[in-house]
Structures are given as structure tokens and as C-alpha cells.
Design a protein around this nucleic acid. Structure first.
Length: 845
DNA sequence: GCCGTGTGTTTTTTT
DNA sequence: AACACACGGC
């Protein structure tokens, strides 16, 4: 990492700036935005003495990236090349040289956490002068714009945001009502297809126009898509993809609205540009277009201050755009990311300046060499070699475990070693390909009392009880949201079953009511008095909560109410619904934890009130909807971080454990048949490797539990792409290769200084003496070959065996068939274990 | 309408 | 192995 700027630095005095908000297009009259902006007023006196400060410790390319001024700038930033620092300083520089007011800057990051970090760092350089900037994710920016302009596109400004679970529930209902499962549609498959289309900015109508309507399956899909769109409309809800797509639609359909934002944002900066999809690309493109002369004149007449922004033609030139990215780190193709956005940037923005950052300030040369070697196997890329001036560092440690648990034990042991050597837990991280892999890791880490934290995974806000509580809030904020209402209708249990729910839904449908109105009028349905009472009570509770939000309502008896904040409303709802009380009174021990989670949510609303005194219910819900996995990373917590390789992007740790480096897992089975799949998985591996500063551990298991049974796993093809002399195999795949497991496998044994297991075919070994002859099965160049094979070994109850690690034991039972035969063994000293006979390091005695 | 049991499906990654 | 869902008895 490049050194950060001195925190005691004070910003130069500058004229006070008012406003900074974008006037809503629908609001008349438009409030003037102070005196335009300082565009074009680059004074020689500004900055000068501080310029050095901003550029301190930067290399020439980084400096240029900070100082370049022009319409378009592409920064190709290799992993660990200090791009965050460059981006931050570039923003600071724009402000300091008065090329921009804070309000003219829109910086887009990949996560909210990265946004907060950037804001903090700019503030550390410039102090309060930095407020008014928009630094946020694509989704947050779009929500902010959409909430202001919602009426324009027929939405309530308190529209709901549907997450993938909400989408799934909605699609499930649609598919059921259409019997579309007979055409092979599942909520997952239909959702994926809809998402893909939306990422391409297609909607139902544009899709239907080109669809092959003689294909019944296609007809069915169009119908699903149509109903899904209609349901979201009716609920005034947008899904994740809509947030981007609808904003682009807004800009295209309402040029006057677009013009206001184009006028405001004079400088766009986009991080992780390689992972933008077409919709995001279009969003950026729309924002950086010039404002036509006609529109500029219109704005001038409307009192929007544009004069000092207009060029010779009378229009407003397009905003400057800076994008930062690295095609080698593109890992989101599955959700529509298109690296052409970055590779064809120069074509999209003619005259763009391109700056390459190749020097790495993060990792040791050994780690970088491994990374370079791996990514070098992707053919369709511009060659780019990371280098470091920091020295070789330690070798990469490799370890082949018998099982996922064994692997977890290795990780846990090494964490312990590192910690005792003085490394803080928070400087270590364990990465994996799939969330399911956390289970074994967690079990072992709990047992060894290692403080750890799973980042992402089943997120706090995805827990059922939290979604229940949030659904109450959503139902208050957006009364037409049927999904939220149906979620809480019988939660907690109040005797409203599926039959009643359906009755209410069709009652609403038939009379053109919303679901909420149907609830209020449910007396007309002729249901039992108990059920009707329960429905009405819930409706009243929600109405009363909604009233609390209205600023100051005076009731008939003269008592004032209203203006309540989020936590007050939530507590009122929890009290009135009995949600919390039911959990507290339950005898199910898990309900205690659920109650605690809800209390944690209440605490979060209180924090929110404190941090956002002006924030309303909708703001809170927005924030909750858009938290990303990496956002809840707490740097101060002294724990080891566990996360998926995807979540790890953009982060760095002193020590990194990459686990499950096996065929089927990395590359993942599911990606094997997809075009570009293995290449993308390789980039994922590359991202993982380059997160490490000092120490890198690569581990794999010979067997892995999946779907409840145990399978033989092969080492990943990517492992052999790493030069053998970079890895110190504590226990190599090759060593665990002999029949019967008689091979010595003491820790720290490397065979013949040779890494172990590999054939030594890599270029890096060309100059070395020929590898000693090997008689064992070589797996390196035959990925499909076996790792260990006890195939001929037959065991039955009563046999005694010897295990390399566990010692002698008695076979109690043998279960399973063929390669999955499992011996249940009672070891004399190591307790009882289940072993996959085919690969376990055992022999009969 | 509720709750227990049995069966089938699941897992790729995420805003 | 864990979870969602359908079914049937209460």
C-alpha cells in the first residue's frame, strides 16, 4: 500500500458553497444551486503548496492518474497497485485544484464499505470541504435518484426494494398459478433469465417483440415475465436489476430530468469497472452525455444555474469520466458483467487517456509470481505483470488434507501458529468457493476457540425473523406492497391460514382493491368472527404505525402524536403484533436467539436514528436493502475473517488461506460447461491469491462431503499452473499417493526439494537439474487420475487397521458401495472415525 | 388452522 | 446434512 496522506493537513480556505442538492425535476420552483460551480476556474494559486502532499509517495503513473485532467481516463490497475489511494487522491485533487465542487462529484464503488472508506479518506485530506459528494454504489445512487423522481415513472417514492428472496417468492406464486412448472420453469430459472434480460436493459415488451411465439415454452416465459412485472408494479416495488434499469429508462424517457443530473455531476469516477454490466454501463453513459443547447436554454429559463457550465455551442459538455479496473479481476460475468466495457473503453470514449498501474505494493514477489503464472494461462488478455520491490518473502504453503475437516484442522492449526508468532487475528482470512464450505471450518474453529467471523453467508437481514420484522416496517412505508403484507399476515400466528389469505387476495383482485384495502374491508368476506377480528386488528396496527410517521397529528381528544422515528415505530409494531413476545415465550431454544436478533435490529434502528437524525423509515429500509456482504466487515474486530472468494474482492490480509482448491470446487462443477467458465474461475483464484500480503496457504482435501455423502476430490488444475519452486508442500497430493498410506507424511517434509507431486514440466524448472525419477502415479498432468487408491483393499467388521494419523483401530462396520465404501473405525487412542476406504491413509494389520 | 412426520431437493458466486 | 414442502391426524 502506498502511504496515506498526513492527517493533520488543513484544506485551503475557500468560498462557502451552498446547496449541492439536485433539485427534483418535479419540484417547482427550482432552488438555485449557489453560484454554479468553479468549473474552468482553475486558479494557479489554489492547491499549489499542497500538491506535493497529495502526490507524496506516489509513483509516476499514480501521479499522472491523480493529476490528469480530461474527458475520459482509464486506469488499468493491477491487484494491489494502490488504486484506492489513487482514486481517493484524485477526488481530493479535483476538489483542491477547484476543478470541482464536492457536489459535482459522483464516485461509484463496489460496496458501501468501500464508499464509506473513500469518503473518510477524502475527508481526512480535505476536512469538511468534502461533504456533498455522492460516493456510493450503483444501486444506492440509483435509489437516491429514483426516490426523488419516482412519480415521473409512476412509482411511489417509498417504493419497496425486492431482494432475490422476494423475487423468488413472487415468481413461485406466478409459476404455480400458471402451472408453468410443467414447462420446466422454476423460480430460480425464470428469475435468472429475467435478471439477465434486465441487465441487458430489456423489458417484457421489447423481449416479447423478438420472442419466438411459436414456442410454447417461450410464450409461457413471456407470460411469467409479464405477470412478474405487473406484480412489482402493483406493489410499487423494484428488484435489484430494476434499480439500475429504471434509472436508465428515466434518463432516456425524460431528457429534462437527465439534464439536471448531467448538469450536476461534472466528474464521474467508477471503481471495479470490469464488473459493470450493460445496464450499469448505460447509466454511466447517460450521465456523461452533454446537455443539448436547447435543454440548457430551457434550464436557464427555468432558473437552473447553467451559465458558467455552457460551452461555445450553448450546451453543457459531457462530464469527465474516470474508470478504474482490471479485466483479470472480472468475476461477475454470471450476473452480466461484461469486460468489454473496460476493454473497449477507448472506443466508447475516443481520446481517452489510459494509465497502467503495474507496481504492486501489497504482496511478496513469491505471491505475485504465483498470481502472474496462474493468470498467464488465460489467453485472451493483455499481458500484464505485477511486480514488487518488496522481496520474495516466504514460500506459499501447500497442504493436502484427507477431508474437509482435516483441511479445516490444518487451517485452524496454522492460524494458531501465526497468532502465536504475533499476527493479529484480524489480519488473517480464510477464503472458499462456496458458502457450504463454512460448515467444516466453523466446527473446527469453534472447537479450537479461534475468534472468527463469517462475512456474508446467511446475512443478518436475510434471517427469517428479521425479514418478518422488516416486513412490518415495509408494510407501513409502502401500504400497497402485497408481498410484505402476506408475509406478516400470520406471523406471529394469529389464526389466518392459507385459505383466508387466498380469499383476501382474490377479494382484492375482484374489487380492484389493494391487499391492504381488502384487509380493511374484510368484514364483507363473511369469514369467522375470530379471523375477521385478527385481520382488522392487524390492519389497524399498521394504520396506527403509519400515522406515527406523519409529522404531528392532533387527535380528536387534543393529544398530539406523530413525527416518530424508526425505532419508535418498530417498537410499536413489535409490541402491537406480539412478534417479540411470542418468541420470548417460546420453549424452542432457537427462538431465544431469534428474539435476540430482533432486539439487535431494534438497536440498529436506534443507531440509525443517531447517525441520521433526518433519516426516515424509507431511508432505513433502503440502507438495509442494499447492504452487501463485505459491508458488515468490522475492521476493529479482532477476528479471523471467513468469506467467499467473491466477497474477498477488493480486500487484503497479511495471511490468506485459500481452501478447497479442487476440481469441481475451483473450477466449480457448474461453471465447467459454460463458455468462459474455467477462465473466470481462474480469475477468481487469481483474485484470491492477490489478496495476500505476506503469507499464502493453499489447501485442498482428497475427499469432500457434499449432499450428505462423501466424494473423492481431485486437485485443481490451477495448482499445477503455479511454478513448483514457489510452493512448500507440507503434505502434497503426490505424497499422499501411495497405496496403503505407508509414505511418511511428517509435517514440513518436502521431498527432494521438489515441491512434491508435480511433474516439473513448468518453464520455471527448465534450468534446474532433471527431476528425480518418480515411480508413483503422477496426478499433475492427469487431473482425472487418482490421488490415492486403496481400491483393492477389502475391509469388514472385525478387521484391525493402522491409520497414518490416528494409529491402530478396529473396524466396527463397513457401509456404502464401490468407491464410497466407508469404514466405521474405533481407534485405540483417537476415538471413532468414519473413513472413506478408497482414499484413507490406512492399511490392514 | 395447526403441528408433526416423511419425502424430495439442494449449492456457485451477489447487488 | 439441512431445509422446504406436502400430507395427514388432531
Amino acid at each position: 500500500m502506498t502511504p496515506s496522506s498526513a492527517p493533520e493537513y488543513q484544506p485551503p480556505a475557500r468560498p462557502a458553497q451552498t446547496g449541492g442538492s439536485v433539485p427534483s425535476a418535479s419540484a417547482t420552483p427550482i432552488i438555485l444551486d449557489g453560484h454554479g460551480g468553479p468549473v474552468g476556474s482553475v486558479g494557479g494559486e489554489a492547491g499549489g503548496e499542497h500538491r506535493g502532499r497529495l502526490l507524496d509517495g506516489l509513483n509516476p503513473q499514480q501521479r499522472e492518474a491523480v493529476e490528469y485532467r480530461g474527458q475520459a481516463l482509464l486506469i488499468i490497475a493491477g491487484a494491489g497497485s494502490g488504486k484506492t489511494s489513487v482514486l481517493t487522491r484524485r477526488v481530493a485533487s479535483l476538489l483542491e485544484t477547484r476543478d470541482a465542487w464536492p457536489s459535482q462529484i459522483l464516485a461509484i464503488t463496489f460496496t458501501n464499505k468501500a464508499a464509506a472508506e473513500m469518503r473518510e479518506r477524502v475527508q481526512a485530506i480535505l476536512g469538511d470541504g468534502a461533504s456533498g459528494m455522492w460516493i456510493s454504489t450503483f444501486h444506492s445512487s440509483c435509489v437516491r435518484i429514483l426516490r426523488r423522481e419516482a412519480e415521473k415513472i409512476g412509482l411511489s417514492s417509498s417504493f419497496s426494494i425486492y431482494d432475490s428472496a422476494d423475487t423468488k417468492v413472487t415468481l413461485k406464486r406466478i409459476i404455480k398459478s400458471l402451472d408453468a412448472d410443467t414447462y420446466g420453469f422454476t423460480p430460480g430459472s425464470a428469475g435468472a433469465k429475467i435478471s439477465k434480460l434486465k441487465n441487458e436493459l430489456a423489458d417484457v415488451d421489447s423481449y416479447a417483440r423478438n420472442a419466438n411465439m411459436s414456442d410454447p415454452q417461450e410464450v409461457m416465459f413471456v407470460e411469467i415475465f409479464r405477470q412478474y412485472t405487473a406484480r412489482l408494479r402493483a406493489a410499487s416495488a423494484l428488484d435489484f436489476d430494476d434499480l439500475i434499469g429504471e434509472t436508465v429508462y428515466l434518463f432516456r424517457a425524460f431528457p429534462d430530468v437527465a439534464a439536471l443530473y448531467r448538469r450536476r455531476f461534472r466528474h464521474l469516477l467508477v471503481d471495479e469497472y470490469q464488473d459493470t454490466n450493460h445496464a450499469q454501463y448505460a447509466f454511466v453513459h447517460e450521465l456523461t452525455r452533454p446537455v443539448t443547447t436547447a435543454l440548457a436554454e430551457q434550464m436557464d429559463r427555468d432558473g437552473v444555474h447553467v451559465r458558467n457550465l455552457r460551452d461555445a455551442t450553448g450546451g453543457i459538455p459531457g462530464a469527465s469520466l474516470t474508470v478504474v479496473g482490471d479485466s483479470d479481476q472480472s468475476i461477475y460475468a454470471f450476473r452480466g458483467a461484461d469486460t468489454r466495457n473496460i476493454t473497449e473503453f477507448e472506443r466508447d470514449y475516443p481520446g481517452a487517456k489510459v494509465i497502467l498501474l503495474e507496481q504492486n505494493y501489497r504482496s511478496t514477489q513469491n505471491i505475485l509470481s504465483a498470481a502472474n503464472a496462474v493468470i498467464g494461462h488465460n489467453f485472451d488478455r493483455k499481458d500484464k505483470k505485477l511486480w514488487s520491490a518488496g522481496g520474495d518473502g516466504e514460500k506459499i504453503v501447500g497442504f493436502t488434507a484427507y477431508s474437509g475437516h482435516d483441511e479445516a484442522q490444518f487451517v485452524s492449526d496454522e492460524i494458531d501458529v501465526l497468532h502465536r508468532a504475533g499476527m493479529a487475528y484480524r489480519d488473517m482470512a480464510v477464503f472458499y468457493r462456496t458458502n457450504a464450505q463454512t460448515r467444516a471450518l466453523e466446527e473446527i474453529l469453534v472447537r479450537s476457540a479461534t475468534p472468527y467471523r463469517v462475512v456474508g453467508g446467511t446475512k443478518f437481514y436475510e434471517r427469517a425473523e428479521i425479514k418478518d420484522a422488516l416486513a412490518y416496517l415495509i408494510a407501513v412505508a409502502n401500504p400497497v406492497d402485497e408481498l410484505a403484507l402476506r408475509r406478516i399476515l400470520n406471523t406471529p400466528k394469529r389464526g389466518i391460514g392459507p385459505a383466508t389469505e387466498t380469499a383476501l387476495a382474490s377479494f382484492a383482485d375482484d374489487n380492484d382493491f389493494t391487499f391492504r384495502q381488502a384487509m380493511r374491508n374484510s368484514s364483507a368476506l363473511g369469514l369467522g368472527p375470530k379471523v375477521t377480528g385478527a385481520i382488522l386488528k392487524l390492519a389497524e396496527l399498521l394504520d396506527a404505525a403509519a400515522l406515527m410517521l406523519v409529522p404531528t397529528v392532533v387527535a380528536e381528544d387534543g393529544t398530539g402524536s406523530g413525527g416518530s422515528n424508526v425505532s419508535e415505530v418498530l417498537e410499536f409494531l413489535l409490541e402491537g403484533s406480539g412478534l417479540l413476545a411470542v418468541l420470548r415465550g417460546s420453549r424452542d431454544p432457537q427462538d431465544e436467539a431469534r428474539a435476540e436478533n430482533i432486539e439487535e435490529l431494534v438497536a440498529q434502528t436506534k443507531d440509525f436514528n443517531k447517525e441520521n437524525p433526518d433519516g426516515g423509515l424509507v431511508d432505513f429500509l433502503t440502507q438495509v436493502s442494499l447492504v452487501a456482504a463485505a459491508d458488515d466487515l468490522d475492521d476493529a474486530s479482532g477476528t479471523v475473517s471467513l468469506m467467499t472468494l467473491h466477497t474477498a474482492k477488493g480486500l487484503e490480509y497479511e495471511a490468506v488461506f485459500l481452501t478447497g482448491i479442487e476440481e469441481g470446487l475451483l473450477p466449480h462443477q457448474m461453471s465447467a460447461n459454460e463458455p468462459g467458465g474455467p477462465a473466470e474461475e481462474r480469475r477468481l483464484f487469481y483474485v484470491g491469491i492477490t489478496r495476500a500480503r505476506q503469507r499464502l496457504y493453499l489447501s485442498l482435501a482428497m475427499t469432500r462431503a457434499q449432499f450428505g455423502d462423501i466424494n473423492v476430490a481431485m486437485p485443481s488444475r490451477y495448482l499445477q499452473e503455479i511454478p513448483t519452486d514457489l510452493i512448500d508442500w507440507r503434505q502434497s497430493p503426490g505424497m499422499a499417493n501411495s497405496r496403503g498410506g505407508t509414505q511418511p507424511r511428517a509435517l514440513n517434509v518436502r521431498r527432494d526439494g521438489y515441491g512434491g507431486g508435480f511433474n516439473g514440466r513448468s518453464k520455471e524448472l527448465a534450468g534446474l537439474p532433471p527431476a528425480p525419477p518418480k515411480t508413483k502415479t503422477e496426478w499433475a498432468n492427469r487431473i482425472t487420475g487418482t490421488v490415492r487408491d486403496n481400491g483393492s483393499l477389502t475391509l469388514e467388521a472385525g478387521d484391525r487397521i493402522r491409520h497414518v494419523d490416528f494409529g491402530d483401530g478396529l473396524v466396527n462396520q463397513v457401509t456404502g458401495e464401490g468407491t464410497k465404501r466407508i469404514a466405521h473405525v474405533q481407534f485405540d487412542t483417537s476415538g471413532s472415525k468414519k473413513l472413506l476406504i478408497k482414499v484413507a491413509p490406512i492399511e490392514k494389520i
